[in-house]
Write a protein that binds this DNA or RNA. Structure first.
Lengths: 118, 118
DNA sequence: CAGAATCCAACCGGATACTG
DNA sequence: CAGTATCCGGTTGGATTCTG
């Protein structure tokens, strides 16, 4: 929701509606922002990746963080986790169709950063 | 940078390049992500806004947070701060042209969130 | 009005060690 | 291999008070 703004006679702007609950952008940042989530999703776009590989691909994040973010992202339906019962066990993370709908936006963020040398 | 992946004879994927420094997506999240930054920029798109109004528009953030984020965003060139020497003093924050280049994907984030009822 | 300063609890996240 | 458990220092961020 966006706050609605009126302009008084003196030119002063009056804010009428207040965003009481977090607006869409903040909610989105909670799902895709934070640390590592964007990178994780990005690195899943070419197919399932195993835990340790993902850990290496993201780079800089600890196993603990990756595991946490993966859980949250699974709960949000961005990816799925499948256990392959070999010895030792293997686990593959795969992006969902829903997760893919976020890739476009991640790409525009990436382009924006690179175009502006941030 | 994206990690490069090869597939070994056994079908196992090998991660070759490791993202040592934060990749574009992470850097972008640091500039636009975090708490409130997206919302702040979003609420500036229709013209300059004063500190307290911005505080109300964002909603939920303390003055301290808004002040901090505004400083960072000014350093990043996303917005400018101009002091109007009235009594009491007024300060207006205005989005820069560069800041405007980020509005596009904030909008796609917003749409994505709303389309999927996040 | 627009902050800066201070205090402090809560959370975050790295390192390490351990498990099935 | 794919995590979980624990420890623990650092950061975050709210509440409150103060200032020009």
């Amino acid at each position: 929701m966006k706050a609605s703004v009126k302009t008084a006679e003196n030119g002063r702007k009056i804010v009428e509606n207040i965003c009481t609950e977090p607006c869409s952008i903040e909610r989105g940042m909670r799902v895709l922002g934070g640390k590592w989530k964007g990178s994780i999703l990005w690195h899943l776009q070419d197919g399932p990746v195993r835990f340790n590989d993902l850990n290496r691909m993201v780079g800089g994040a600890s196993k603990k963080m990756i595991a946490q973010r993966l859980q949250e992202m699974e709960e949000n339906g961005l990816l799925t986790r499948q256990v392959i019962s070999t010895k030792p066990v293997a686990v593959a993370y795969e992006i969902t169709d829903f997760g893919r709908t976020a890739l476009g936006f991640l790409e525009s963020l990436k382009d924006w950063v690179e175009d502006n040398q941030l």
